[in-house]
């Protein structure tokens, strides 16, 4: 190795200017299109689902300035097979309750890994972006290496989205505290 990795710095409270300009109030930037608004191009086959939830801090208060990115396999378990950025999306949480909503397709398992959506969380106060995963409570989890590695069932449950309604799943992210989400060093 001849170079050292660049250090991370917080995305800060104004990350939206750079990453989701319309949320910051720059509606006409980049032709009004935020990158990652749609996770797959239209007509990619799969079961439509909606994942939604909130982000909370260690005091249980909603985090109002987070940006989330999502990266997932398609309904056949392949990554990046549906256009160059297919399977990737980005959301700013809302400024009222730290809420997000992702309309996507149910991913399939990939190798040993159970079906899941990868999440990356940045915000003011987060020095190094946090990786986690969303698994689904009504899908088989088999011998998924991450879930198997988490011995405490309470901790494991922080990675499992709960089915709610016909096509919906609820997945909250707790940065700290009793319900702290499991974060991953990828």
């Amino acid at each position: 190795m001849s170079h050292s990795q660049s250090a991370s710095q917080t995305a800060g409270p104004y990350v939206h200017i750079g990453c989701t300009a319309s949320v910051a109030g720059l509606e006409n930037m980049y032709g009004g299109c935020d990158l990652g608004a749609d996770i797959f191009p239209p007509n990619v086959p799969g079961q439509k689902i909606v994942i939604s939830g909130q982000v909370f801090d260690g005091a249980g208060d909603p985090v109002l300035d987070a940006m989330l990115e999502f990266w997932q396999a398609d309904a056949t378990g392949r990554y990046g097979a549906n256009g160059p950025s297919g399977g990737w999306a980005r959301r700013a949480v809302d400024a009222e309750a730290g809420r997000y909503r992702l309309e996507t397709l149910l991913p399939a398992a990939s190798g040993e890994e159970a079906a899941h959506v990868k999440v990356w969380v940045v915000a003011r106060g987060i020095n190094l972006g946090l990786h986690t995963r969303i698994y689904f409570d009504d899908l088989p989890q088999g011998q998924d290496p991450i879930l198997v590695a988490i011995k405490d069932p309470g901790r494991r449950s922080t990675l499992i989205a709960q089915r709610s309604g016909d096509d919906g799943y609820i997945f909250d992210i707790h940065l700290q505290g009793d319900k702290e989400t499991v974060f991953i060093n990828v």
């Binding site: 290496p145 700290q176 499991v182 974060f183």
Partner: peptide, 16 residues
């Protein structure tokens, strides 16, 4: 209030 207290879980990188 935004720093996780648990250690990060190490992961063997997969296709994703």
């Amino acid at each position: 209030l935004r720093a996780p207290h648990h250690k990060l879980l190490s992961l063997e990188q997969g296709a994703g």
